[in-house]
Design a protein around this nucleic acid. Sequence first.
RNA 1: GCCCUGGUGGUGGAACUGGUAGACACGCAGGACUUAAAAUCCUGUUCGCCGAAAAAGCGAGUGCGGGUUCGAUUCCCGCCUGGGGCACCA
Length: 1021
Amino acid sequence: MEYNFRDIEKKWQKEWTDTKAYQVNNNSAKPKYYVLDMFPYPSGAGLHVGHPLGYIASDIVSRFKRLKGFNVLHPMGYDAFGLPAEQYALEHGVHPAKSTAQNIDNFRKQLDNIGFSYDWDREVRTCDADYYKWTQWIFLQLFNSFYDRHQQKAVAISELINSFEQEGNTKHICPGNPTLQFTAEAWKAFSEKEQQDILMDYRLAFCGYGEVNWCEALGTVLANDEVVNGVSERGGHPVVKKKLRQWYLRITEYADRLLSGLDTIEFSEAMKEMQTNWIGKSSGAEISFELRATSFEQKNDSQLAARSSRLLVYTTRPDTIFGVDFMVVAPEHELIEKITTAEQKEAVDAYITYVKSRSDRERQAEKKITGCFTGAYAINPFDGREIPVWISEYVLAGYGTGAIMAVPCGDERDFKFAKHFNIPITNILGNAFNGTEPNATKDAVLSNSGFLNGMLMRNAIEVVITKLEEMGIGKRKVNYKMRDAAFSRQRYWGEPFPIVWQDGIAYPLDEKELPLLLPDVESYGPGPDGEGPLANLNDWKNTTYKGKPAVRETNTMPGYAGSSWYFLRYMDPSNDQAFCDKKVSDYWNQVDLYIGGTEHAVGHLLYSRMWTKALYDLGYIGFDEPFRKLLNQGMIQGVSEFINEVRLHREIVSKYENHVKNLFFTTETCEVSLQLPNKGGNNGKHFFFSQDVNFDFNIGVLDVATGRLNIQEKEISSSHANIKYIDQRSDKSVLNIEKWMDEQPVYEESFLICKNGYWHNHSYYDFSGNKLDYKLEFLTRPEVEKMSKSKLNTVSPVDPIDPENKDTIVVKFGADTFRMYEMFLGPVDQSKPWDTKGIEGVHRFLKKLWRLFFDENKGKIWTDEQPTAEELKVLHRTIKKIDEDTERYSFNTAVSSFMICVNELSDLKCHKKQILGDLLILLTPYAPHIAAELWKQLGNEGSVLDASFPAFNAAYVTETSKEYPISINGKTRTNISIALDATEEQVKEIVLANELVQKWMEEKPLKKLIFVKGKMINVVI
RNA sequence: GCCCUGGUGGUGGAACUGGUAGACACGCAGGACUUAAAAUCCUGUUCGCCGAAAAAGCGAGUGCGGGUUCGAUUCCCGCCUGGGGCACCA
């Protein structure tokens, strides 16, 4: 009987489904254990080999904990709202609900083939109304709450109103507008609109204004993903920043708790560091600088008001105030318009236009120093010095006050800026500043610093803050880099907000009106004025509120809304009275092990932590951290293949559209002329170059009017070629041109230029234009990067359309082999490119295991004989190793221990049931199908899933002596076997008496002998 | 640019807390079985030197340069380089 993995795996997968082997009960006497995978987005490309890495790891842990006697919750579901489905709908007119359902079906089919132990009765989909009803409900809780800074928790907004009615807002500073102050009387006198506007500035979910990537040509807001080099990915249209009304979550109020909560959870240090940096807590001072009036006092009345304007900066280093040589203000700062002088206006406007086209990322990454003087001056409050006010893109409006005081002698960026614009640098650091590079120290003694002279900078910080507070022009300030989370999207495929607008006031829907269903739309295109597609639905949009006309909110929620609380819904997935029964969440409590990639470090993982804290504050759940332990899986990277293209600039192409007949270029060996197709349009004008063609060529076109023309305006671009068209030949990646053309007929008229000829219109030619009867090699350039649909480099373990496709790993080698191979690849938390080299080894291991049970000719060969001491030693060594390795998520070394065990048992010709049975239990989490089959074959009653993990007995593995490595001066020279209970004196005697040791010592005296019991011995001479 | 993370044979990786670098596999080379192939099994495999070969031995070696230590893949300092994230991909 041979190892027929396909049949075995299908049989057991059916068995487990039929018997509901993975169904989990919310009531159990067993201790609970909750293992969760990060919510997958069901993309059209289906599951790729990167997904299962974490799923296999979590499946191993689930099954392992089950063997160890836990009641294990291990659910799966889909984060099903999102941009890609909407994008697909825009392009193909398919309703996102339909394509999403299709994608989920495919995803599921793939998962089912790998043998996961999910309780599918608990599946959730964020796009189901039964689910998003509760996402909307939680939104309403956030909308109806504010953060009470005294109690450090979320509290119902009704309590805030009570407080306003009693004492105005003296007790609760307004987080959205810190300078706002009003009395109880004033509150009562406010109109409803005024009151609601004030409340909005307190709510945890609130409406405000924020900048988005606006693409005028498409009439829509673009995701960062859709913007490439400042233009839209689709169509290449310009993208600028635009302010739009947006919903936000006031996550900044939770900043401190998100920080301190990190101490209570087991995330990697790297992850904690990333979150800490993201939150970016710093303390310093806010300083209000007076602006010199003269420069703008001549302006008209409205600008005269600016005379009283002051420039507010945030600094962590108030001690450097005498070293301030200029101010830098964010170009979008509202003060700029007021303070810019007439002479500088043109330059400033031009600079602002430039900055509008730049993303925050570009602005910070830019090495080139840019900026513009506003003509205005601020005044140093201590020495009256006039400080020029500049604007520059490196200061972002969203951080601090959007303005900094620049101290070039102490700050890298400020220093470069000053050098670039020839701004004189004041040295306040004495000898600590050499004039050629800035020094950010806090330990220098201050000079040129007025009343601070001679003081250590570190100590001066407090002194300056105190002085500023006395003068009433500054105050101590804790600042966070983190901003409130933008919570609305101008999109269709997301949760509608349960909000209606009337007279500019946002009213929440009543709980009873939930879910507010996402309506169907005719087109997925944008609505008017930057609104989302829902704005086009007048019937849906126009509604009534308290009998009067009102309009619904037409934004939808972002992808992370549904994923911020899904781990709670799995506990109680079909509850229609609550998002999750409190008793149930009390039982399951936190996720004990959460597995997913680091790419969610600061998005999902912060949002879900915040939601959990808010739900805890409001009393709906009993814990305020969702994930007790986080394991980051590494990324399985894909090998992308790039294809080089030379593009003639658009203008050139259109300019010569009718003249261009030939294209010339030179290779290393000859000059080549290609006749261009007569057809108009762009299709024929693609020129792809093989990787081995020298790129340093001239290119030209024949212009009928002027003769030959050299084209300088060309660019070489690289784009992804789908790896399914690439053949790997030894070290080369060769494009299969025919296959590629089958699916991309638009390129038929293009030229694919190879080293010794070219391809055009289904034929190969040499550079003289002679048709060839053989193929040329067109090479692409491989590069390792994230595996993703958009990079066309995904590899799938199971074909989503045809699960029996023989080209896929699971069909070829089986799910058990695939599972163990993914684990064997390396540490689960490390990234590595996908490569199937080596999968044979794992497959051989399973076959070898099989042969411990079955012989080709003899059939069953296991016996009931008593195991020998040697066999027990092998088994128990393995038990210990598998137990330890699984506990510490070292799955790759566990797999190798299984291999060692099977190799040794094979060498010992051990076919004893007692040994093999225990081995199968150990193997169950890793290779459940083969383990279940052999377990059954051995004649065991019951499922191996519920066997109990074998107990390790140290007596079987105890050693009495050890082959000690003997080093002479740190270099290993020999080994000596010494009893493990030998004393240091005995060891010394044995070692020094050794012939080889004496030879190396050459009669030199012994300086020292280092003896580490059970490890090694080092002789120092 | 900023934050995080990785770099060990031809390849994936092992060495868990500073203690024999290269476990376990892949690949490759040689051999056994076979008419042959597949499958399976055995032997070798970090590099260099010495040597006909084997054995033995010597030297170097964990991205690069320095340091701490009896001893460093592991700790410290500086650099090079791959990957991920940077707030609307999820």
